[in-house]
């Protein structure tokens, strides 16, 4: 099997703090990591390759430092990585990102599966996986929670939906986006890390891909961010700070009274 895994380097959002005065993000010292949800895609790809043979190519669009994300993927067991990087890609929304990643996938050549994480933890749209499928004119199954089997040029997977799990069959080649349940990501191995350090990561720019200049970056993006602001959280919290059994009882009595007042009990 030849599997392509698009991954994204994201800021460790749990570590992001807000500057109270300016309402902007303090990015200093915030680590860049592989999008945690991409690790599940990488793990599934590794399991499929180990079972059926073949190779896995990770591809990432981003600034030059995103090569670190590809090295991490290689240290987990991915065979090789391709960086897709160009100033012309800056400011891409999900439409323009899907466009470039689809072009990169096409350049990598024949494959059986593209496996994506459900979404990136920074942008949180979940649109790029289906977007790549749309540009490649390939079938897509989103929210894959379990890979069941490969059967005669098709794969059988479970898809997590609101009220249960669909069992679906998709003719290959195709695109999957996976949720956490699909696999438990492994940690990088020492040997993997050595391999990753030595790996050559080619960097493809706009001129290396079959893309139109007017569909790239901000200019190629249908959407525009027009305003950024801090969410306002305005609730007055009645807060009890019990210090002993008596005050604990008072606090719980207060809560029961509060719930009764709201007619919740």
């Amino acid at each position: 099997m030849r599997i392509i895994v698009p991954i994204k380097q994201v800021p460790e959002t749990n570590a992001v703090r807000m500057d109270e005065a300016t309402g902007t993000m303090i990015r200093d010292g915030v680590e860049a990591i592989v999008n945690p949800l991409d690790l599940y895609a990488i793990e599934l790809a590794i399991q499929l390759r180990d079972q059926h043979g073949g190779e896995i190519i990770a591809v990432s669009m981003g600034p030059p430092k995103a090569a670190a994300a590809l090295r991490e993927a290689i240290s987990m067991g991915v065979d090789s990585g391709v960086l897709v990087s160009d100033k012309a890609f800056a400011g891409s929304d999900t439409w323009a990102t899907s466009y470039v990643l689809a072009a990169a996938v096409r350049k990598i050549g024949a494959f059986d599966l593209v496996i994506c994480g459900e979404r990136a933890t920074d942008g949180d749209t979940g649109q790029v996986g289906p977007g790549i499928a749309a540009f490649l004119d390939l079938p897509v199954i989103s929210y894959v929670s379990k890979f069941d089997s490969l059967v005669q040029g098709a794969c059988r997977v479970h898809r997590l939906v609101e009220n249960g799990y669909e069992l679906l069959e998709m003719a290959l080649p195709g695109v999957l986006t996976v949720v956490k349940e699909v696999a438990a990501p492994r940690l990088p191995t020492l040997r993997g890390k050595q391999k990753a350090r030595k790996a050559e990561i080619p960097s493809w720019g706009a001129k290396d891909l079959d893309v139109h200049a007017d569909k790239l970056g901000l200019a190629g993006s249908p959407t525009r961010v027009v305003k950024i602001f801090r969410p306002s959280v305005a609730r007055k919290c009645v807060k009890h700070v019990p210090t002993d059994e008596r005050t604990l009882n008072e606090a719980v009595d207060g809560l029961v009274g509060f719930l009764r007042g709201k007619q919740l009990i």
Binding site: T24, M25, V225, K227, I228, F229
Partner: peptide
């Protein structure tokens, strides 16, 4: 946006 740290219009 950005993990819910900010809102974007």
């Amino acid at each position: 946006a950005i993990g819910g740290n900010i809102m974007a219009t």
